[in-house]
Amino acid sequence: MSVVIECLSYSYNLGTPAIVTALSDVSVSVERGEWVSIVGHTGSGKSTLAQHMNALLIPQSGRVEIDGTEVKPKAKGLRDLRRKVGLVFQYPEQQFFAETAREEIAFAPHNWGLRGQDLDRRVADAASAVGLDAALLESNPFSLSGGQQRRVAIASVIAAKPDYLVLDEPTAGLDATGIRELTHLLSELKRDGLAIVQVTHDLQSALDRSDRLLVMENGVGVTVGGAEDVAAFLLRNPVRGLVIPPLVQFSAGLRARGIEIPLTGDLDTIVRKVEERSATPLKYEPANGACAASDGQGRCSS
């Protein structure tokens, strides 16, 4: 079960002089239970690609297949496909329209025909899945904090029970605590079997979290792969709008100095490696040339 995108191209204002090509020949697939990040500069086509994943946009050329069904204009069952793939827009809380968080979350399942206790249970499940306090369900969504609003917005998408969750810049505008909590929430949803597709600018967190990354540049998918491969690719081939995260730079620097280390290891891994290979623990020999045992290349001036 997967969303498969093959050789997808898409232009806005097709057939007019104002044509803008947003995607050219992009291929990527997302399996259930997988976390895929789409990274790239603003205007690289990330959001356009995301909107193809739930048939909000229909391919102009190339194919999009959701669980084996091809997305075609006016195809039967587009409605079902859209239910399978939940799309959380940028700043989703700006689209709130209901008086209470409960109504907001209930909107989609109500539209699909759920009523009464079934509907209540669906709302309660979605709220608990995003860690939203049940007491907050009766509040006006606009009175909630930014982090809570984002949860309500995600809950309202989850309430439709999608198999794939596509989020466009889900952490934008959240503070550090909000980002941590949201990332944790997405990991839990993934553990429950949902596929997570995250469009993001934050390369570090994408490398930390994703099973695979798709790197976009000017509407083209320049590479797709696991974190290590993508980090190695980006070190060799700079991509517009993406800055190599400092920890990856540091790890690459250690490699250049002959230390075997993953490029996308976490802070502890890096510190442990440095400690293992440190010539002399500076702490204990501060006085007469802390680096007496160094490689003699004069890098360690004390």
């Binding site: 440095v274 702490k283 204990y284 004390s302």
Partner: peptide
């Protein structure tokens, strides 16, 4: 993250 790394290395005496 680079500041965290810096503090960590410094506190373990791995950086002058």
């Amino acid at each position: 993250p680079d500041v965290s790394l810096y503090r960590e290395l410094l506190s373990r005496g791995l950086l002058p």
